Simulated assay, not measured.
Amino acid sequence: MSEKHLQTGDVLPPYSGKLRVFAMRFCPYAERTVLVLNAKNLQYDLVFVNLDHKPEWLFNFSPKGTVPALEYEQGKAIFDSNIINFYLDEKYPEPALQSADPLRRAQDKIIVELFASVQSAFYTAAYNAQNLQPEMVENYHKGLESLQKELVARGTKYLHGDTPGLVDFTLFPFFERFEALPLIGKPEFALDKAKYEALVNYIDAMKTVPAVKSYYLTAETHAKFMESRNKGDANYNMLDTSDVCCMRPRKKKE
């Protein structure tokens, strides 16, 4: 699979008949949907797009120009990772990624909602460090402490249970990127195992899940992308090997 990010002027690849996801390789929200598709063992195509120079056709699938977007039939799509993933779990019910208990489903949604302040602190630290405030770091750690308490209280390997579920695949893409923050000069965001033993063990367990393992990128790789973006020239194609492939999309003729 090519990891080239298509941009303004590039042609939309032909539709193969499979589910098709429009994504950006370093986007945690797009990763959420990829992980759910993997967990469901669904066949799908990935089209990566450059979010600084968006292809014109992206807006046909995602009116806001955001990723992920899921083309479920040719020319028909839905967007937003949460909307897509709830759709996938209902459309393709095996394996089920949500609890059968309505209360537990609600509790899982609360976990995701409360995690928003942690995500916000991450984005500021990673891409807007000049505006990072001490209370943001404090909120980051408060959020992690709360999540760790929930893990301990549930007493299961994953938040979903003995196997990972939608709540786990929703949170993990951010944990994958949190590990890059100390590498770009933000040691205050490190997850000290002495303080976060249960949480670190949970993250390590998630890395071994086949749905995650096939898409996971190292902290060093995420750090390189963050640094390139902060320099004003995000290196979207740093993982691309399509130069050796005859299937590279061609640009429109002028």
Results as ranks from 00 to 15, higher is better:
55 P>R: 05
51 L>A: 05
42 L>G: 12
75 G>N: 04
122 F>G: 00
73 E>H: 12
72 Y>I: 14
56 E>Y: 03
46 L>Q: 14
33 T>V: 12
27 C>R: 00
75 G>M: 07
70 L>W: 11
36 V>N: 07
113 E>F: 05
82 N>Y: 10
56 E>K: 08
79 F>C: 13
42 L>V: 13
65 G>M: 08
50 N>F: 01
73 E>C: 12
50 N>G: 02
29 Y>R: 04
126 A>H: 01
55 P>K: 04
27 C>T: 02
112 V>S: 07
99 S>I: 11
119 Q>S: 07
31 E>D: 13
75 G>T: 11
54 K>E: 00
99 S>K: 10
109 K>N: 15
83 I>H: 09
41 N>E: 14
97 L>P: 06
52 D>L: 10
38 N>E: 15
65 G>Q: 04
34 V>Q: 06
47 V>Q: 05
92 Y>C: 12
111 I>T: 13
120 S>D: 09
40 K>Q: 12
22 F>H: 03
48 F>K: 01
114 L>V: 05
68 P>I: 08
102 P>I: 09
112 V>I: 15
25 R>K: 11
121 A>F: 00
88 L>F: 11
120 S>R: 09
107 Q>S: 10
61 F>V: 06
91 K>R: 15
101 D>L: 06
62 S>C: 10
113 E>V: 02
120 S>H: 09
63 P>L: 06
65 G>I: 01
56 E>I: 04
84 I>Q: 03
80 D>N: 12
55 P>L: 05
116 A>S: 13
30 A>H: 02
73 E>I: 09
113 E>T: 12
100 A>K: 14
34 V>L: 11
25 R>F: 04
